[in-house]
Design a binder for these strands. Sequence first.
DNA 1: TCTGGGGTCCTAGGACCC
DNA 2: TCTGGGGTCCTAGGACCC
Length: 369
Amino acid sequence: MGQPLFEIRDLVRRHNVIVKSSNYALYGDISRRVMTLVASEVPDSAIYSIDEIFIDLDNMSINHDQWARDLKAKILRETGIPVGIGISTTKTLAKIANRLAKKSFKADGVLMLKDQKWIDLALERTEAGDVWGVGRKFAQKLASIGITTALQLRDIPDQAARQMMTVGGLKTVRELRGICCSDLDDSPAQRETVCVSRSFSKEIDDREMLKEALLSFAGRACAKLRRLELVACRLQLFILSNRFRSDRPQFSKGCELTLTPASNDTRQICKHVGENIGRIWQNGLQIKKAGILLLDLCRPEDAPRDLFSGSCRTENPLMQALDQLEVRFGKETVMTGRLARRSGPDWFMTTDNRSPNYTTRWQDIPTVR
DNA sequence: TCTGGGGTCCTAGGACCC
DNA sequence: TCTGGGGTCCTAGGACCC
């Protein structure tokens, strides 16, 4: 996971490994199909990520194991996607059950952790770093005091958990003990930020090029915001050096501004980008990555009002037209004049080997003869 | 010349997740 | 030579208030 392709070229060649660039339009559509199916089978569920969903089985008096196997078979039959199902008393334990369900030949994709004896065994066979909420740094910290398994982690004193991994870590430890510390759905009610950023294929040291990139990111970010039907009250621009070049000085520069009135209008945001680029630009910097963050998001009707310029617009026919054109003719069919040139941008990362959009693009739908 | 106590808010940085 | 992107949460510390 996360290993650069160039480091494993030999392996790829030797075993004829197929290489695919990520295609989120495809993954998103397949995800939607699976999630819709699952949600229709249960009274209460919460989508956690593109490939995970939590289900509440509390009010379902059934044979959970058999039910899960039937569901798994149904998902495979109707979407073609194989899934794993883990069942337990807390989310953290259910995630562990899920991992083992996929790994164990005997479990065959479905595993229930209910009896304490089996929970203990499962925790003993799970590395501390594989527990949900324990990342690389915490795993290192834990290892330094001799904690390497999930079972050992479960049994550390509350105070130690709190001290080493803050309140989130304490929650994790309690969940390992079977004490529920999270609701079925504890995702925030509303998105708080939208970010569009990219690494460049090679470092940029040209101001116009940086500006072009940021303006294009701004367009994407505003389109996202409009899809969410939100506006931003604050804007941040940032640039970063190449973190892999230890021979060069590292930098990370950013600037922030308040948007008055709050907005999701590409023209407004682009104007701000143009006016503020000087605050992060500096001659001689080798910029590897840049991005735009839209913060303090809220619904247009909740946006703070400015005493002089009035409230934030809720209707924006021009932007609506722009969005419709994108749906019909593809991304960046129409752009602001500031971004007149579709640069065929030489700063873009390549995405060779991308899977076709089998389910979301007319031209890519497979033909069966 | 002496110089408190109790708050909130904001931001940067670091951890985590997928 | 090549090294991802987009999120949330927590904490410490500083600025500010009365």
